[in-house]
Design a protein around this nucleic acid. Structure first.
Lengths: 217, 217
DNA sequence: ACCTGAACACCGTTCAAGT
DNA sequence: ACCTGAACACCGTTCAAGT
C-alpha cells in the first residue's frame, strides 16, 4: 500500500493535526503528527516543505479566522471589538503563540483583520504611516498579553526585593487568566484613549493651521 | 585531565557563550557552546540543569542590565526613557527575544526596571492594580516591537488583497530597523498619552468626589 | 567538585523504491 | 502523485568512571 487510491494527507490535514498537538502539549513533532495521522514521518514531506511551513500554515489559519467588525460602528468601537476578537482567537490557541514568535513570519499575506483595522484607523483620522504603527502596536499588545497568559502565577506572586510601589501592585494581583485579561483590558483602554487624544490633536492642529489663511474649520 | 586544577566552566561563562551564539546565529545548542568553550557537552550539566535554565539565565542577564531612570524627572519622562532603554537593551540581543518568548519564565525575580516603573506609575497616580497592568502593557509593546524587528521586510512590502487604507499605509513603510523603530515610538507616545489622560481622569474623579464634602482639591 | 566517554532516546530531513 | 523504509546527521540528557 505505497500509494493509496485516495490521498490520506493534505497540507490542511497536517496543519490541523499539528495545531491539535500544540493545543494539547505546547509543541509538535513530525513523528508525532505522523503517528496521529497513521502515516510515516517522511510522507509529510509530500505535502509540506518541512516544520517551518507547518508553523506558517498554523499562523495563517489563526489570523484568517479572526472575525471582522462591521463598518456601521464608529472607528474606536470597531478597533476595540476587533482587538478583543483577535485576543480571543489567539487565547484559544495560547500555546501556539510562543511558537509563532519563535519563527519569523515569511508570508506577505494581508489578512481581513489587517484591512479592517487599517480602515478603522484611517477613518479615525490617522495618517497612513500612523495607521501601520497603530496596527503594530495593537498587535504587540495582543501577542504580549497572550504570552503573559502562559506565564505561571508564581512569577508574580513571589517577590523578593520588590520596592513599596511594586509590592502594593503585586498584592492586588490574582491568578491567570484573570490577571492577563485585566491587563489586556487596561492596556487596550490606554491605547484607545491615546489614539483618540492623538486624533483630536491632529484635528486641532489642522484647524490651527487653516484658520489664519481662510475661514474653513 | 578529568578534573582541572582551576574550574573551566561556570553558569555565567555558559550563559555568555550561549548569548554569543544566539546573537550570531539565532539559536544555541549544548554541543555548540561546549565546543566553543573547549569542553564536552556533558560537562555543562555540572553547572546548569539543562537548556531551559540557560535560557532563563539569559533572560535574567538581559533584564537586570537595563539602566534605570533617576527619580528627579517627572513620572512620564521616566517611563519614556526607561521604555527606550528597555527596548535598546532588547534590540541589542533581538535574536534572543523569540527564544525568551518560547520558554515561559519560571523566575519570580523582580528587576530594577520593574521597581522603577512601578514607582513611576505610582507617582503618576495610577492605582496599585493599574500599576501592574501598565507595566505589562509596556512590556508587551517592547517585546512586540523587537519581535517585529526580526520580521523580514518582504512581509510588509508585498501586499496582495490589501484594501485602499492598507495599501496607502504600506506605501509609506520603509525597511527595518527604521520601520520597527518608528512603530515603537508611535506606540510609546500613544501609551503615554493614554496614561496621562487616564491619570487626569482619576484626578478629576477624585476631585469631583471630594469637592461636595470639603474644600480640599 | 569537575570533566570525560559512552550510551540512550529522540528529532528533522533526504532519497531511492514501490504502486 | 503519494506513501514507505532505510539512512543520515544531529540533538538534549544521563551516568558511571576518572582525578
Amino acid at each position: 500500500m505505497a500509494r493509496p487510491a485516495q490521498p490520506i494527507l493534505s497540507a490542511e490535514i497536517i496543519t490541523v493535526a499539528a495545531l491539535r498537538a500544540v493545543d494539547a502539549t505546547g509543541d509538535f513533532t513530525m513523528p508525532g503528527i505522523a503517528k496521529e495521522l497513521g502515516v510515516r514521518p517522511s510522507s509529510l514531506y509530500t505535502h509540506v516543505s518541512g516544520r517551518a511551513e507547518i508553523v506558517e500554515l498554523m499562523r495563517m489559519r489563526l489570523l484568517s479566522g479572526i472575525p471582522v467588525a462591521d463598518e456601521s460602528q464608529g472607528w474606536s468601537k470597531r478597533v476595540a471589538s476587533m482587538a478583543w476578537e483577535y485576543r480571543r482567537t489567539a487565547a484559544k490557541h495560547w500555546r501556539l503563540i510562543p511558537l509563532l514568535a519563535a519563527h519569523t513570519a515569511r508570508t506577505g499575506a494581508v489578512f481581513g483583520i489587517d484591512n479592517a483595522l487599517a480602515q478603522a484607523f484611517s477613518d479615525g483620522g490617522l495618517a497612513p504611516a500612523e495607521v501601520l504603527h497603530a496596527i503594530s502596536t495593537l498587535d504587540s499588545l495582543v501577542i504580549g498579553s497572550v504570552l503573559d497568559l502562559a506565564t505561571p502565577d508564581v512569577v508574580w506572586t513571589e517577590a523578593p526585593n520588590a520596592n513599596e510601589a511594586m509590592a502594593a501592585a503585586l498584592a492586588t494581583s490574582g491568578p491567570n487568566p484573570g490577571r492577563a485579561d485585566a491587563a489586556f483590558e487596561f492596556g487596550l483602554r490606554t491605547l484607545i484613549t491615546g489614539w483618540l487624544a492623538q486624533a483630536l490633536t491632529g484635528v486641532l492642529d489642522s484647524a490651527a493651521i487653516s484658520v489664519p489663511g481662510n475661514a474653513a474649520v
